[in-house]
């Protein structure tokens, strides 16, 4: 009885892990290519599209600053509380993103073989 339950547990956990694996493959496999631009959104609304091949520094509505250098984008400063976005490594491959949930800002690389249309 007890072993049967543990087996069910294991199957349940494996099923969920497999689901996560499937989402991983679907969302990251096509993202091997270098992207062309980043889309910056505030609360889901498109704020700006910046090309990755031009170095720049952009103030995003006073919430944070997105810096592009050497073909990669990063968040250099932010008014948010946890600064996960600032600590995130620079992104350059299509599909990669930096999300700042406290401010509702997302930075996502587009172009290349983009999974999301």
């Amino acid at each position: 009885m007890k072993n049967k339950r543990l087996l069910c547990d294991l199957l349940l956990i494996l099923a969920i892990a497999a689901l996560a694996g499937a989402i991983f493959l679907l969302t990251r496999l096509p993202s091997g290519e270098e992207g062309e631009a980043v889309e910056i959104r505030i609360g889901g609304e498109l704020f700006k599209v910046l090309p990755l091949d031009t170095d720049s520094s952009t103030d995003v509505g006073g919430l944070c600053t997105v810096v592009i250098e050497n073909g990669a984008a990063r968040v250099s400063e932010s008014t948010c509380s946890n600064l996960l976005c600032v600590n995130h490594r620079p992104i350059s491959r299509s599909g990669e993103s930096i999300v700042c949930l406290p401010n509702g800002v997302t930075v996502r690389v587009s172009g290349g073989a983009d999974f999301y249309i």
Partner: peptide, 27 residues
């Protein structure tokens, strides 16, 4: 909720790791 409030496409990127973390923490 995050997908509703911000850019869903950007959030899919985090979905697998958050599911696995939740699974491990829950276990």
């Amino acid at each position: 909720v995050a997908m509703l409030l911000t850019d869903a496409a950007a959030l899919w990127y985090y979905t697998p790791v958050l599911i696995i973390c939740g699974l491990a923490a829950g276990a």
